[in-house]
Design a protein around this nucleic acid. Structure first.
Lengths: 220, 220
DNA sequence: CTAATTGTTTAGGCTCGCCTAATTATGGAT
DNA sequence: ATCCATAATTAGGCGAGCCTAAACAATTAG
């Protein structure tokens, strides 16, 4: 029903709305997809005619219920494939995004249900992002907060990353940080709003706000 | 480098050449892809400009070495995915073709090498067709012949099917025949060039030439 | 050898998805 | 309330891939 191009727009609109809490502007969509604003205008018109988006110029594009359903299914497929690639084909967590961007467009609900079952219904992908179930429900990550907001002397463990770019993930690898790693905030510094944390393997690790805002943790 | 559409043409040309031993005519390609001859002319021109095919009008389109390499890689991907779908996601052998047609266009040699490794380098897909290795080498099926050509009182086992259509595969399921099934030709009849075979579970099974030509077996 | 049939290409047109350049509309600052 | 920077749209065009209808070429049958 939807082409890959359409699906990419729908996903972009969804993630922009999620990130900003507002409708996605023409310009924002263009930036997200590395395309031009005029192309976005074109596509938004098409998606609107298909009943997948609403558009109030200068106030953003929002997904209709139907559009939202499509978006969550694409995200489900994306995260299922990422999980498969990491857990079964032994890719590293910073290597799977591009591949999943291709695989997410495979058109078969049944295939993805089977993949889900094959992996025993994983709840989170390799970056800690929740995998929507086949009805589109997403478990909510109650209690999860950026490391930057954690008070001194709290024991937490890493449950996700806000930034899944290869660069950031490789940085974490280099610091010996991965999902599940337990951390305690030892000290908090005014300067650069940085925190000093200790893990079992490394203590006195100083993290700038730039990092600690992207690291999602949960108290233990 | 190649679009899905181009890949489909290349694959079609390859399989027609394999089936007929000759270059693929414009008409044959059109039939294979359920498209029109004029569309084929268009695409053949493009593929020719890319150096993937040669074309002598009225004598058929043939793949260049480069085109052949692409074709075998697509077939490799197709058969790897079919194997994955059947062996790991528990699809039936008549259900996987369409899905593999989508998955075969995923652009990543590495992914398919890993998939190959994950499955322990399978040599044949669920229909008994050989899976090219990453250099494009295909194991040759020495000694494999259509059941129709097997002399009386020979013990054979099924190693492949020439026709992988769901209809034919379901027929085989209905007859209790699958890859590996051992058969003996009890009798051969003039009429319809049919053969009577026995398996461990069923004896006196009469097969028309239409079926026995499609069943590839190997003497034991 | 010619004619008829079949195969192939050409011409022109369509949609999708993208582009650039030019234009218009708007929200926000003054 | 007006003006401006920014956002958005329009207009026109392009390539890929497909189509129909018409023209044309070649194989093969007579």
């Amino acid at each position: 029903m939807s082409s890959s191009a359409e699906e990419n727009y729908i996903k972009a609109i969804f993630t922009i709305a999620e990130r900003t809490g507002k409708g996605a502007s023409t310009t924002a969509i263009a930036a997200q997809l590395s395309t031009k604003a005029s192309s976005v205008t074109d596509m938004v018109k098409r998606l609107n005619e298909k009943g997948l988006v609403d558009h109030r110029p200068y106030h953003g594009v929002t997904l209709t219920d139907q559009g939202t359903r499509i978006a969550t299914q694409i995200i489900r497929k994306h995260r299922l494939w990422e999980t498969f690639l990491v857990n079964h084909l032994h890719y590293k967590w910073d290597e799977v995004h591009e591949l999943a961007e291709q695989l997410e467009h495979i058109d078969s609900d049944d295939l993805h249900d089977r993949l889900d079952k094959f992996m025993d219904h994983p709840k989170f992908d390799p970056h800690g992002d929740p995998i929507p179930d086949k009805e589109g429900r997403i478990v909510d990550m109650a209690g999860a907060v950026p490391l930057a907001e954690v008070p001194k002397d709290t024991l937490v463990h890493i449950v996700g990353v806000k930034d899944s770019s290869p660069a950031f993930l490789k940085l974490l690898d280099g610091l010996g940080l991965k999902l599940g790693t337990q951390l305690t905030v030892n000290r908090r510094f005014e300067f650069g709003n940085s925190v000093e944390v200790s893990s079992r393997f490394r203590s006195g690790l100083l993290l700038q706000e730039e990092v600690s805002l992207q690291l999602i943790v949960k108290p233990l």
